[in-house]
Design a protein around this nucleic acid. Structure first.
Lengths: 336, 336
DNA sequence: GTGAAAGCGCTAACAT
DNA sequence: ATGTTAGCGCTTTCAC
């Protein structure tokens, strides 16, 4: 088999304890033997066996992140935030990707297995109470990112506020008949953004008009796609009267809306304004006004709270709600 | 501490061996005791310790994938391909993200540590010979994806062919003075695509004109960015005579080119045509003609060859070269 | 400063 | 069908 601590010990004519100490930078190893050990290890390309270390130490120095990868750009930025904060620590990040929602439970189970990692960060996944109970039975920390449940520390962006900000921005720019192209309301973020939409109208004293709202019935990606945005926008345009602006619950949907506009010959923002949500790279390119989520911060804080929880498992549960930000570009520009 | 196989054994009044067998679906456990064991395990929320299992089995059932995450959309699709093929197997995928190229060596070392995984798939990373030697000293399989080195199995897309196809497409559509906006030639894919560019010209009997070429000097992302594409295109337009088309070595650069066109008042494709490379989502939205890489297939094959190598470590090294595909959209449309 | 030895939690012969 | 036992490769007391 592979070379072990025993082989090194034998060749260096010391005990395995000394070899182990040398590798763990234990102070009480004479620099002479330390040097000899390293030299031999180097020569044999020796590396400690991670499983054996974990077993003996009862520690893996690994953090699992479970990330649904449908929201392509969003999670990339979040991962960047994770890495920034983790790099330089003793810890290492491993990502369990979830492509199809059906894979989530299996990945959860794997990530939580004892001896795999110290705990996990779960992204953009809404837990049922059953799942939450199951998870909370584990001793390892679980941090929720971009979602919420009372049992776990969570870091999320305030979607209601974000929805409200989007619509308020449109109102302040001078638009009045504002439509909503929303993803499937089975998705909590969509639901929250819609609540924000209504709240903004209410604050402005504008009555809610259901003919100005279309909801995606898609269940695969919950309507968070260009195609859905395109179709739903066409539906909305067909049914709505005097509409002069649209708030779409994501940037990709908004891009679909833009395509729909082009197709029916509407200029944006001259004939109809548009707000997206997320601020993905595409948005800047398309000149799309949108609501930016602090994705890097999300990642940073996730690691932060993970470490906190690791230190003090009994600390009170913390919920952080970050504020999104309006990014005004072309599609919501004031006219004249 | 946490509950172990011993606790279960004691409570079920059997030996640990029986408990182990029950969990590993060994046939020779009476269904009565099996049931009892499961019941007790369930009650205590028992899970085997992964480190202990790996140590005893000498097997982790884990595959490491090292993925540089700068090329945002590309790797997403590849991961999808990986997952598709891996899901349902005994194996599990863990991703070691590389955000900053400087993190790569550390991640490599971690992923290759014995007891961590069965081996790794390394994405879009060109190995120096020293690195390759170092890696090849490990017994674990290493599969190269989107890059190439003679020592390892590799799966890549033929970038020379792709470059040639892009330019040939432009020529066939009727363009003659074709410029090249290339990423830093330190990046092997850029180099290969440029070779393709030259080859296409040569086959068409058109002499190579260096004033039609600009290369990014960026070293961070090697010029694969919208900003670089924008600036380099402006440079090219300033120096080139009678240019009627541009081939950019990536879609993001091409988007930058599009912005540059708008800025100097050039219509595309009426005044100048454009080809990108990759076929990211943005490309379809922008109506950008481009070269599509079979990203899903790349992921699928990576797993395929990983398993093959695991089965037969001494099999001959395989190099697969996939063919890209022309996607003709608006920016290379024939006029009139 | 170094060694001996007892685990860590599990698997897998080898018995019975 | 089940138990005994010897590892797997390492860490960590406790001696000296």
């Amino acid at each position: 088999m592979s070379i072990t601590i025993y082989d090194i010990a034998e060749e260096a004519d010391v005990s395995i304890a000394t070899v182990s100490r040398a590798f763990n930078n234990h102070p009480r190893v004479s620099s002479k033997t330390r040097k000899r050990i390293f030299e031999i290890a180097e020569r044999h390309n020796y590396q400690p066996n991670a499983s054996a270390q974990s077993l003996a130490r009862k520690n893996t120095y690994l953090i699992s992140a479970i990330i649904p990868m449908m929201a392509n750009y969003f999670f990339l930025e979040v991962i960047r935030g994770l890495q920034d904060r983790i790099f330089g620590s003793e810890f290492d990040l491993t990502i369990y990707p979830v492509i199809d929602p059906g894979q989530a439970p299996a990945q959860l189970e794997r990530a939580m297995q004892r001896g795999r990692s110290e705990g996990m960060m779960l992204f953009s996944t809404w837990l049922t109470d059953d799942q939450a109970d199951w998870l909370s039975a584990f001793p390892q920390p679980v941090i929720l990112v971009d979602s919420h449940h009372e049992l776990f520390d969570s870091i999320a962006v305030d979607n209601r506020k974000g929805g409200e900000m989007a619509v308020t921005h449109l109102l302040q720019t001078g638009f009045r008949r504002i439509g909503l192209v929303t993803a499937n309301l089975a998705a909590v973020p969509a639901r929250d953004r819609k609540i924000g939409y209504k709240r903004a109208l209410q604050k402005a004293g504008i009555p809610f008009d259901p003919t100005l709202v279309v909801e995606s019935k898609d269940v695969v990606v919950h309507g968070f796609s260009e195609e859905c945005g395109y179709e739903d926008t066409l539906r909305l345009l067909a049914q709505a009267q005097d509409i002069d602006a649209i708030f779409a619950t994501s940037d990709v949907q908004a891009l679909g809306a833009l395509r729909a506009f082009r197709e029916v010959g509407l200029r944006c923002p001259e004939d109809i304004a548009l707000m997206g949500y997320d601020d993905v790279k595409l948005a800047a390119f398309a000149g799309l006004s949108t609501i930016r989520q602090p994705m890097n911060t999300l990642g940073n804080l996730a690691v932060e709270y993970f470490f906190k929880r690791l230190e003090d498992p009994n600390a009170e549960v913390t919920h952080i709600s970050l504020r999104p930000e309006v990014v005004a570009r072309n599609t919501s520009a004031k006219l004249g």
